[in-house]
Design a binder for these strands. Structure first.
Lengths: 193, 193
DNA sequence: CACCATCTATCTACCAGTAGGTAGGCTGTC
DNA sequence: GACAGCCTACCTACTGGTAGATAGATGGTG
């Protein structure tokens, strides 16, 4: 072959991510991926034996990326308000420019009852990771005097996560990416002192 | 035949609704429905020529049910706060008892880019209907002195809708129906005077 | 009333296409 | 020569959908 090396597995994952975000677990096939990546269908099985393996690896990698991104936000500034704003702003940018119009975790959570168990586990881990980070940031921000919390940090974090996910859904339903920012903006204003 | 009459179409729709809520548009097949309803697969085509027809009718009927439900809440009490609470409480009950663990409109919105156009149109109409009703209720409640709005009724309505949808998603992801109430409760407390 | 046409709802049998997945072979690199 | 990576060829199961037949109800006409 003409040199595709390990690189191919990543191209498969990148393609799968786009397709899953567009149509969910049952919304794509190995044939779809093969057509985009430019290899034959069975070659995908060489990298990911089964579809469940592929999507499991996809969500696990997505979670790693998320964790790295969140750590990056914490390095940018010690101010919890800035960290939270960075998270929101990043999503706003991805949705607006269409590079990532929806959260992979939220997408798969919607069809959780129909997912292979090994994928469902990864999706749940995604929610736990995100909720834990938001809780930490809110607690830290409250301690810094940057946030005004009316409920526990845990509960406020769950509320923020839910609103962010719901805002993505509305932006998609209306076909207007700006909807995301419109919904999420007041969320921060209410919180930041 | 032993008399199934028109009744069959409704049993097909009821089954389809459950299956779509569990796994989305591509998460069920005519064979699945046939097995539940107790007829043969091609008999479904007699009632709904294509899968897109079936799901279009499903969402249209779901929206009619929603409109009827919202009108019912308005008949129960002239108090906008009670009307909004009725809406929330109804969802809380459906999620808790498992009879309707997710909103059909939100489920399909998640895979909107992959949906047949005639279905996508119905899903968008669902979002517009719900947002319009919430906007009305919030405006009326503010006028009645029952709600404290910090933004426009339209924007607050979008925020509530997003949070409700996101709370359903989190309840599903965590596998804990009570999560819905935990997230949505503070939403009302913040609003009601 | 008897007759016939039509309609509705279902069936069996089948179609082409696609799903995820397997077997085994070729080729270039370490 | 082992192995990674890709290929062709193939498999079974299932997809949405069609064709044509059947059985029973309906309704108009002589």
């Amino acid at each position: 072959m003409v040199r595709m090396e390990q690189h191919t597995a990543e191209r498969i994952l990148a393609t799968a991510r786009q397709l899953v975000i567009a149509g969910g677990y049952n919304g794509f096939s190995y044939a779809d991926i093969a057509a985009v990546v430019g290899i034959r269908k069975p070659s995908i099985h060489h990298h990911f034996p089964s579809k469940a393996d592929l999507v499991q690896a996809l969500v696990a990698g997505y979670r790693d990326d998320l964790a790295a991104g969140l750590a990056h936000f914490e390095n940018l500034s010690p101010d919890a308000a800035v960290q939270l704003q960075s998270y929101i702003a990043t999503w706003e940018a991805c949705i607006t420019d269409g590079s990532m119009p929806f959260c992979l975790g939220a997408q798969l959570a919607a069809e959780l009852p129909a997912l292979p168990p090994e994928v469902a586990v990864e999706v749940k881990a995604h929610f736990r990771l995100l909720a834990a980070w938001l809780t930490e940031v809110l607690a830290r921000g409250a301690q810094q005097g940057r946030f005004r919390l009316t409920d526990s940090a845990e509960l406020e974090a769950e509320g923020i996560m839910a609103t962010v996910h719901g805002a993505m859904l509305s932006a998609r339903a209306y076909g207007t990416p700006a909807t995301f920012g419109l919904i999420v903006g007041p969320l921060l204003q209410r919180l930041i002192i």
